[in-house]
Design a protein around this nucleic acid. Structure first.
Length: 366
DNA sequence: AAAATCATCAACCGCCAGATG
DNA sequence: CCATCTGGCGGTTGATGATTT
């Protein structure tokens, strides 16, 4: 099988996404939600295939993504889950709030695998390496550049406190590679993609609305930089509490900047409910160093300031550089929602209040 | 300082399964 | 049923920046 037909028919762009493309896709999805990916490029004015758009959204643009280094808990969880699930990255990602399968897969291949090998644990079987294996793996370990060997602990054992399995209790015993049979069963019988199963809807929202924690996230940063982006950091991720469909008119602020083609994007969703209920989040209209932006009615971009602190800002909108939206999809009458977003169609993975809650800190420092 | 090597990760590729006509 | 389309997934690649030689 060759490339998807959608990619063959037209000459479509490949490679890294430009900030402009990100802007288009982000604006489109935040306005109309995810429907048919194959039609997204056309409607959003992109020269990409639907698959590419989907991937970009899921792995990068999605507002609920958490960025930055994996915490020790996450790391332990991944190892434990991998023992049970193997390379089912999507299922593993479903247990880690704000993390994508791609991200976890990369983390595993570039880091965790080596750590386990260094511990003498076969990353495939999660059992101690046999003599023969040790011989084979020794070379890998020797060539590994991991500076700090994984300590004997802590690692995790998992328990499932509720029938929904909506949370994990993580004990910090050393990693023995073991899960209970019951735990195993739950993982193995859990649907591969259950994006909402770990999401706790507030009362009354589950039916008609949708909570959308929103992250401010950055890329193009190396691990050392990403300390700045840890949830509790002053520059860390931010999340927004409830956003209901009925309030989507009061959306949104987004920022895109480019760092050698690796875009940085911050996004912010807001509604009256948020303004009233979250004092921590009530003064969030400006969140970027060097470039002020303000809340807009009916979504879209708004920029102020000269971005002098970030020369990489390239999504200058000039009071709304979204001409594409005006001339393409909006007017075609193919779309029903203009002021509302179908957040229910956001391919959110699991979201945990525990982890995202800390993200509110950012707003206190702005 | 330059070249070589390594690590990271965004994005693509190919396959599969389910939906649809 | 069969063919086609589409979304989703895991494996892999290639670009880039960092580090080492």
């Amino acid at each position: 099988m060759g490339r998807h037909s959608c990619c063959v028919k037209q000459k479509l762009r490949k490679g890294l996404w430009s900030p402009e493309e990100d802007e288009k896709l982000f604006n489109y999805i935040t306005r109309f939600g995810v429907g048919c990916w194959s039609s997204v490029p056309k409607l959003a004015g992109l020269q990409r295939c639907g698959k590419s758009c989907r991937l970009r959204w899921i792995n990068y643009l999605r507002p609920d993504l958490k960025r930055g280094m994996f915490s020790q808990q996450e790391e332990d969880l991944i190892i434990s889950l991998h023992e049970v699930l193997g390379n089912r990255w999507a299922q593993i990602a479903a247990q880690l709030p704000g993390r994508t399968d791609n991200e976890i897969k990369n983390f595993w291949n570039s880091c965790l695998k080596k750590k386990l090998l260094k511990q003498g644990i076969d990353p495939t079987t999660h059992k101690p390496l046999t003599e023969a294996n040790v011989k084979d793996e020794k070379k890998i370990i020797e060539t590994s550049t991991m500076q700090t060997p994984l300590s004997q602990g802590p690692s995790v054992s998992l328990t499932f406190p509720s029938s929904q399995g909506s949370a994990f209790l993580i004990d910090s015993n050393y990693y023995d590679g073991g899960l209970t049979e019951a735990s195993r069963e739950i993982f193995l019988t859990k649907p591969a993609l259950d994006p909402l199963s770990f999401y706790d809807f507030p009362m009354g929202v589950a039916q008609s609305g949708f909570n959308l924690p929103v992250s401010q996230y950055h890329t193009g940063l190396k691990a050392s930089d990403q300390n700045l982006l840890e949830p509790n950091s002053s520059y860390g991720f931010s999340s927004m509490p409830s956003l209901t469909n009925s309030d989507h008119g009061n959306l949104s602020v987004t920022e895109f900047s480019d760092n050698n083609s690796a875009s940085k994007i911050s996004s912010l969703f807001m509604n009256d409910q948020v303004k009233e209920s979250s004092s921590n989040s009530s003064n969030m209209s400006t969140i970027y160093p060097g470039g002020g932006c303000h809340m807009m009615e009916n979504a879209g971009f708004s920029w102020e300031g000269d971005n002098k602190f970030d020369p990489l800002f390239q999504f200058q909108v000039n009071g709304g550089k979204s001409e594409d939206f005006k001339t393409s999809s909006w007017e075609e009458g193919q779309l029903q929602t203009h002021n509302s977003i179908d957040f229910t169609s956001f391919p959110l993975t699991s979201l945990s209040e525990d982890l995202t809650g800390a993200n509110f800190d950012v707003f206190q420092h702005i």
